[in-house]
Amino acid sequence: MNSVDQSSEKGCVSQLTDIQEFLSRFHIFSDAPSGVASLFAYLAKREEYVKGTLIMAEGERCDRIFLIVSGQVDIFQYYNERRFHLQLLSCDSINYFGELALLSEFNWFFSARAWTDVSLLSISREAFSKVMGKYPESYQSMVQKIINSRIHRFIDQSGYLLDHISPEAWREDPSEASG
């Protein structure tokens, strides 16, 4: 369990520092200047979902990134009216989803459901833009990290799908076959 989830006997100001410390463990926020990090910590919203609840649905307008504080989240997608499981995220592996929402407005192309009781932090695109507006020098590196995170997730998802792909889908490299 992460420190943001624990109620503490510390002084009045520990909540913000706990969240900031939690955020620093994410690749996207890891090297952010202290001013930027504390603003994100301040603007992050806590969301809690009980097991089985839909966190976001395919086709809805995206507006925020989610960071998993505790619990597991099932990422899935419908294709040809069949439900395909893509990833099971938990706080100790790939523990974020919806990162592209920080950069652009689009409709979610996947859904997320609470696999267990889940505690999340979310940061909205509006908050991201407001902070970046004040710290433009950090913007480029943040965007790069968001894209890297996305690639990381893509590789993970592709690996999972390839593991489960039917044998018929396998083809030899045509160039090698002709040779």
């Binding site: 503490s8 006997e9 510390k10 002084g11 009045c12 100001v13 520990s14 909540q15 913000l16």
Partner: peptide, 12 residues
Amino acid sequence: PKKHSIVNLPSA
């Protein structure tokens, strides 16, 4: 407490 993350509410 659960809405304002600016500070923590001491549990005491």
